[in-house]
Structures are given as C-alpha cells and as structure tokens.
Design a binder for these strands. Structure first.
Length: 891
DNA sequence: CTCTCCCGCCACCCG
DNA sequence: CGGGTGGCGGGAGAG
C-alpha cells in the first residue's frame, strides 16, 4: 500500500504549484468529503515505516509523501479501483500540474516523517532538477508545521461523513506518529474538533470520529447560544468602541448588563451520541470552550466576520480575566490555533478587516449558515457558491465544454496557471487562494465604495483570502463531488475580458481540440461548470446565506418549480431571491450589494449579458426591483453586457483582479448602463454547465450566459424565462440521453437588444428522465450563433448538439441519435423537473453523488478497521514529547 | 516592525 | 504516582 507512494515520481514538474498544493492541502478537509475513500485508503500507519516506500520514493518521487494525502495518490496507482484513486491517476497522468501539486504536498508533509525526511534527502539527489523542491524540502518552513496543515492531514484521515455503521477510533498516539508530530499538537486539533463534535473522547488517548454529520446541529446550537449570549451586541459594542488592546470597556459592558457568560461549558459536549460524559470530566476545556465561543461569534455575526481582537476581548471578558496585555496576547494565540483548525474544516477563512485603526486580522465564516435545513445542503450550497463564483472569476470565459473527467483535471491544474506567482506568500492552507492577491485590488476598490460599511474585507495575500483562495479550495474538493471548472486555462484571456467588461474574447481556436475539450461546445464561449448538486443548491441558495429562510416563495410569475430545483435559475427567480435578501444588505450601497450578491450567487455569473435596460420596459422593472437582483443591477449599472458585467463585478466582488488589475471597474458598476455597448457583445455566448445532481436525474444543463434572460421572460407573460439558451446534457452517470438544446433565437446580433423576439417558453420533457422530467426553457433572446463572431462554434451547435457535449457526453454520443430530440430554436421558459415524487434532500443527494462518483469497490472498505490494525505501538514509555518525530531526519 | 503561531515546559488531573 | 492533558507564553519565522 504505502508502496504506492512511488507514484510521486510523476511529480516531475516542480514549478507549478504551490497553489495547487496549497489548495489541496487546504482542501483536505473538504476532500474528505469528496474522497471519502481517502480516509479509508490512508493507512493508519505512516507510510514512512515502509522500507519499500522509501526506496521507491527515492527513485520515483523526489518528494516524500508519506502520509495521507500523498498516500492517496500512491494508492491510486496501486489501487485503481477506488474512484478517487482512478481520478487521481488520470489526473496525474494527464496533467503535470497535478503532479507538481502532489509533489508539493509531499513537501509539506515531509517533516512529519523521519523516514520521509530521510527519503527526501535521498530523493534530492535523485531529483536534480527540482532545485526549488530541494530548497523547500530542506527547510521545512513553519507553514509546513503549521497547525492548519497538520489539521488538514488529520482530517484527511477520516471521512467527513462516515457511515453510521462505521465507528472510527482515533488513537492520539497513532495519529501523532503518523503525522509526525508530538501529541501535544494533536490535542490542539482534537480539542477544537471536539468543540464541534466532530470527535469525542472515548477513552484515554482515544477519540471517536463522528465526522460532520452533526455539524449543522452543533452549529445551530452554537448559534442559539451565541444569540443568547448577545455576542452580536458585544461584538458590535467592541467594534464600535475600537478598543485598543484590552479596554476597560469590558467593565462597561458588564455594567451594561451583558451577560457574563461564565458558562464555560457551553455546549458542554453533552451531545448524546458521542461525547462520553467522561469527556466532561476535564474541567479545563478552555480551548474547546474558546473554540465554541469563537464559532458562536461568527454565527451571530451578520457580517460573518470576526476580528481576532474582538474575539479575544470577548473571551477574556467572559473568562473574567484581567484584561492585561499578556492575556490578550495569549488569547489571540489560542484563537489562531482554533482558527487554523476551523480553517481546515473550511468553516472560516482568513481575511483582514480594515478599520480606522488599521488592518486587523480577522476570519470570515464560510461554512454552512443555514442550519435549519439540511446541513449538508447548506454546506454544499455554500461551497458550491463559492466555487461557482470562483470559477467565474477565474475563468471569465471558456471556450469549450469539457468532459467531466476533463473538468476535473482542469481544476486540478488550474491553480498553477496564471496566478501561481502569487501563491508564495500566503498561509499554507490558504495559499490556495493566492489568487486573492490578484484580486485584492479589486476588492479594495469595491470596499471603498461601500462606505456604509465601516469595514472592508481585504484578502491577504498570504493567507487565504477572502473569497478566492478559499474558494479555490472549495472548488477543488468541496463536496462529495467536486466542482470542477471546465474551463481551459485561458488565464489571461478570461480575466482580461472579464475585467474589461468586454467579452470580446478571442475566439478560442481550441474548440476543436479533442483532447482538451472534446466536445467543443462553443468556441470562445465562456463556460461555467457547476457541480451537479450544486446547481440544485445554487438555485435554492441564491438568497443570502444568513437568511436562508427568506427564500422567495416566488411571485406569481415566478417559477413553478420550487427553488430547490436547480432550474430556478431563471432570472426572475433570481430576482426574487435577490429581493429577499437580507434587510441589512439593502442599506448597503449598490456596489456592495452587488458584490454580495455576486459572491453569494454563483449563478449570477452566468447571467446573460445582454444589452441592458433597453431591453425591456417591463423588465425595466428590474430597476424597479431595486436592483435587488444582482443581475439587474448589473445590467442597469453596468455598461456592458450583463455577462461581462457580471464577470467584471464578480471579479471585483470576488476581489479578483487581474494582476494588472482593472481598478476602474468599480466605477463601471456605478455608472449608468450604456446600452450601446451592450450591442456589441451579443455574439459571445456564455454557458453555464450544470451537472445535474441526483435530483435531475443526471441531467446536465448548459446555460448560455450570453442571452439576456430578462428581456425574454416577461414577454411571454406567463413564466419568467431563462433568457439563456441552454443545453441539457445527460450526465455521464445517466445513460445516454437526448440532448436538448434550446436554440438561441435566430436573432441577428445587430438587432437591437430590446427588439429581440421572444419566443414563448417551450416546454418539453425528456423521455429519458425518470419520472417526468420536465424542462421548460424559456427562450431567451437567442443570438444567432452564426452571426456572432463565434460562428465557428455555431455550426456545431446547430448541426449536432451532441458534439458540443462534454466528454462525458462524448461517451454518450454514440448513444445519442440524430433523432434524439434536440430542441433547437425553442426557447424554454421554465424548466420543471420532477424527478421523483420525493424531493431529494441535499444530504441524500450528496451522498448519492459521492457514491456515484467515487464509489468504487475498494472504497467501500471499512477504513476504521484498517486503522485499527495499526495502533498498538504506542509505547507507554515514550514521553509525550517523544512522539514527535525529528524533522531533520531519521535518527 | 507586526503578525503568526510553533514549541515545549510544566501544572493539572485521572486512574 | 505515572502518565495523559492541555494552559501558557517565550521566542522566532514570515511578511
């Protein structure tokens, strides 16, 4: 098994990627979700033990990838049957970038295992080229030892959502040895995890792994407690006051009657399931308590951003400690520890808040927000959103649709591309998001505009940043199924375009490239790929996280379909959703709002870029809507086609900016729309590729973002329609399916935007779908493909929709028959999906997915058991500290 | 310089 | 009492 490690050999390309590495590492936590197998796969014992590995490693891999993550890779080769493994293999084989990434991973881990270190040294010799690697290896940076990274590794060992049947026991000694750290460090991790009930102490040196199943519940509880504690008020108070270090303020607050929360026990881990009462025995759970409180702060915060100083102050106050500087300092240290773990869990990400006083380290909650509904759903949703957003930002446009496999590869490789340079700085885990740096400028610009908001979040280069970095993480391994971007690496292109607000993208010649993008969908078309479940989630989630419940019930005209259905994408629905937005948001400046929306709604990115307002008087209402919908706002405000706008905004919002950064962007948003410009772009088509979640019966839908949704919908008067041309593609998982393409209207580009003929909504059903899958696509004004510059792609579209399909589709191609129903020229106004009488819960969906994608014979094995085998060797004699493995090397 | 936060001493506590 | 836990803060890497 460990032997597999050899795989690393692949990693020949050094340069790439830090990002990737970082991402992966950062993602680990998430990966768990995705690669459920991983945990299982990962041997309990450190690979290092294996002589074989070492030797092999020397030979093949320069890096030492001993532990978990790496193992996977190795494993993969060894055990292809695992879905994950297969995937990885493919990826690694396919993309050098990936290899690099893997390598890097190894780098990070090396320290842990002596053997590894040893190996490394040897390897170094072997691998001559990787000077970089070498230097990195030689100096295990602090980052490599960081708690966050360690936590990721730790998490990687266990499935996020373990089967109820499987009970995983964590042996601290074993873990410590495995991860090559002293046990003390493990305590830090475990304590935080325990605070969230991801684990519970079962016995001495033994913890039980529960996974995230109950996380929503726990969060809900914490939120409630936080509310009871009036943390929000406290935070507001503190923030307002801008206390310096420890302020006497504390005293004031108390006076004010803020609860002195002495309840150190908080949740008290009284959770029935796992935590044994014994766990409580320990009085001192301060780290756990702190962790819970820290989380509570996020949960009660509207902004979801908590600065460390505020958190520390509150904690100190509660603990009734004398607010001395040293205390504060200590608290902050602990908070960092906690934050590292939480970051690894993808619950928070690091940001910086700029206040009058200056920049303050802070963290933003990025975990699930709506605990009321299914946790998974929420989690997924959040992640998806992020992903989508990121995708858009990063890949303003894509040229083609790729197969799912392809996509995956892509994703992996992505990080390397354009942004690589920036990665260097960041925090280990967050480095992923080095993109942040790129975008930072944007963000700042945006922030400035939002005066109402005292704070602005700025991504930190090094650390994760705001959205992007983290996002990237998500993207990589968000949910059970990852979200992959389909886009090719068209770095400069997409970004620039988006920034410019011009979609005028050079038509990608690529379209035909079989390898890269098998089905060349539309050349020069931006494509967004959304994970199956994601779509579903996305739609539902358009609303703000904080106020999930607010989800619109839909205006009369709104979609028939419940929001949950992914198809709710229709602009109208979005609009509704937007309207539902949180109250507080409304006060914010438009810019802010937009950014928010964009961030929150990935779909928005997809939105059609159409000539704005001119479009339709009726829709002109959009304005009336207050631009609640970002789309609308975008349009209205945006000078350019919606898409571009969106992209641009997204960029800005996401804090993404090209290196060159197009600061001016901000202004654009505010600026009155320029209809004229809009006319230019119609040609460009943007597609949103949605892989259907279980709920959709494996349907994949492509939405063309080029269209202007708004314009279309209302006209029909019946249903709000998508303005987007879309293609429905059978998912790989599903058997061969007919491809449905809603043809764009044959409207000449030249035609005035507003004039676009609106075809009525088309309603059609797909036979292949389970029960009655109904797709209603509203024909948005369609652009005449040919007319557009993109023409190259057009023929394909018209001629053979199937061709356009992603690789996945490609498979099914054969299946697809000419006769297969292709709906061209029919705009669908609304899609109604009814797959099964019973609504699919997010959870179930996720599971399903996971299984579908990653389930493999091997994967199913019971990890726990395996792990079990290993532990034993904990030598009682060894002092706690002994456990640590010398980073320097064996000996 | 500030921000982070690793490291490990050493006090608690439990069995 | 021995050993598991984990508070705590010095001090150094990273930026």
């Amino acid at each position: 098994m460990e032997v597999n490690c050899l795989t690393l050999k692949d990693l020949i390309n050094p340069k790439q990627a830090r990002l990737e590495l970082a991402i992966e590492d950062g993602e680990n936590a998430q990966k768990e979700n995705i690669f459920v197998d991983r945990s299982r796969m990962a041997p309990k014992t450190p690979i290092k033990n294996e002589p074989m590995d070492l030797s092999k490693q020397k030979i093949f891999t320069p890096e030492r990838n001993p532990i978990t993550p790496v193992k996977l890779v190795d494993r993969q080769q060894a055990e292809p049957w695992t879905p994950t493994a297969n995937l990885k293999m493919l990826i690694s084989a396919a993309s050098p970038d990936i290899r690099d990434r893997e390598k890097k991973k190894g780098l990070f881990r090396p320290i842990e295992n002596k053997d590894d270190a040893f190996t490394d040294s040897l390897q170094l010799d072997v691998v001559g080229d990787s000077a970089v690697d070498e230097f990195e290896k030689q100096r295990p940076s602090r980052k490599q030892k960081s708690l966050g990274l360690l936590c990721q590794k730790f998490l990687a060992r266990y499935p996020s959502y373990p089967l109820s049947t499987e009970k995983t026991t964590i042996s601290l000694d074993e873990v410590a040895v495995s991860l090559g750290v002293e046990r003390r460090r493990i305590y830090d991790i475990v304590n935080v995890l325990e605070s969230l009930h991801l684990v519970s102490r079962v016995a001495k040196n033994q913890y039980g792994w529960h996974g995230r199943h109950s996380l929503p519940k726990t969060l809900r509880t914490l939120q409630r407690l936080g509310e009871e504690q009036k943390y929000e008020e406290q935070m507001a108070h503190l923030q307002q006051k801008e206390l310096d270090l420890m302020d006497y303020k504390f005293g004031e607050r108390r006076k004010n009657g803020y609860p002195d929360s002495q309840d150190q026990q908080l949740l008290d881990f009284s959770e029935p399931d796992y935590s044994s009462s014994s766990a409580n025995s320990r009085k001192d759970k301060s780290l756990r308590i702190m962790s819970q409180k820290f989380v509570m702060l996020f949960l009660v915060s509207k902004t979801k951003i908590v600065t460390l100083d505020v958190a520390a102050k509150i904690l100190i106050e509660e603990s009734q400690d004398t607010p001395d500087h040293s205390k504060f300092k200590t608290k902050v240290r602990r908070l960092y520890d906690i934050a590292n773990v939480l970051t690894s869990l993808a619950l928070i990400k690091k940001v910086h808040v700029t206040e009058e006083r200056g920049r303050k380290p802070a963290f933003k909650w990025i975990g699930p927000v709506d605990f009321s509904s299914s946790e998974l759903k929420r989690e997924t949703y959040g992640k998806i959103q992020v992903c989508a957003r990121q995708r858009l930002v990063r890949y303003g446009s894509f040229n083609t649709v790729q197969t799912s496999e392809r996509m995956e590869r892509k994703v992996i490789s992505e990080p390397s591309s354009p942004y690589r340079e920036e990665q260097g700085s960041g925090g280990y885990s967050l480095e992923i998001g080095s993109l942040a740096a790129v975008y930072r400028q944007k963000i700042e610009d945006n922030s400035q505009e939002s005066t109402s908001i005292s704070k602005r979040v700025v991504s930190t280069a090094g650390s994760s940043d705001t959205s992007l970095p983290v996002d990237s993480e998500y993207c990589v391994n968000p949910l059970a199924h990852q979200v992959f971007s389909v886009a090719q690496d068209l770095p400069a292109l997409s970004m620039q375009n988006s920034l410019n607000g011009q979609v005028g993208i050079p038509l990608a010649p690529v379209s035909s490239n079989v390898e890269s993008m098998k089905p060349a969908l539309l050349a020069g078309q931006p494509l967004v790929y959304v994970p199956s479940t994601s779509l579903f989630m996305l739609c539902a989630s358009l609303r703000e996280e904080p106020f999930p419940e607010s989800c619109s019930e839909g205006d009369g005209r709104s979609l028939e379909v419940p929001p949950t259905v992914g198809l709710s994408l229709a602009p109208s629905s979005q609009k509704r959703l937007c309207e539902d937005r949180k109250p507080w948001e409304e006060h914010e400046p438009a810019t802010k709002r937009q950014s928010q929306e964009l961030e929150d709604s990935p779909l928005s990115l997809v939105m059609p870029k159409k000539p704005s307002d001119s479009i339709d008087p009726a829709s002109g209402k959009t304005m009336g809507n207050r631009g609640s919908v970002f789309l609308e706002d975008t349009r209205v405000n945006g000078p350019h086609p919606a898409v571009e706008e969106v992209l641009g905004n997204a960029t800005a919002n996401c804090f993404v900016s090209s290196e060159g950064g197009n600061p001016s962007r901000n202004a654009d948003t505010e600026m009155p729309s320029k209809e004229n410009e809009s006319t230019k772009e119609p040609s460009l088509l943007h597609y949103l590729y949605v892989q259907s979640p279980a709920g959709l019966n494996g349907f994949n839908v492509l939405f063309s973002g080029s269209q202007t949704p708004h314009t279309v919908g209302p006209s029909s008067g019946q249903l709000p329609s998508f303005g987007v041309p879309c293609m429905v593609l059978p998912s790989p998982t599903v058997g061969p399916f007919p491809v449905v393409y809603s043809p764009a209207m044959p409207v000449p580009i030249s035609s005035a935007p507003g004039t676009l003929p609106n075809t009525g909504p088309v309603n059609f059903s797909l036979p292949g779908l389970g029960s009655a899958a109904h797709l209603l696509l509203s024909p948005a004004a369609m652009i005449n493909p040919k007319s557009s510059t993109l023409t190259s792609a057009d023929p394909q579209l018209q001629g053979q929709p199937s061709l356009n399909l992603s690789p996945v589709m490609a498979r099914s191609h054969s299946v697809i028959q000419p006769e297969s129903p292709v709906y061209v020229g029919h705009p669908a106004s609304v899609v109604k999906l009814q797959q099964s009488p019973v609504p699919v819960t997010p959870k179930s969906m996720q599971r399903t997915h996971r299984e579908m994608f990653f389930k493999t014979p091997g994967s199913l094995g019971d990890p726990v058991l395996r792990r079990r085998e290993r532990n034993q060797s904990r030598n009682s004699s060894s002092a706690q500290r002994r456990l640590e493995i010398p980073s320097s090397g064996p000996d």
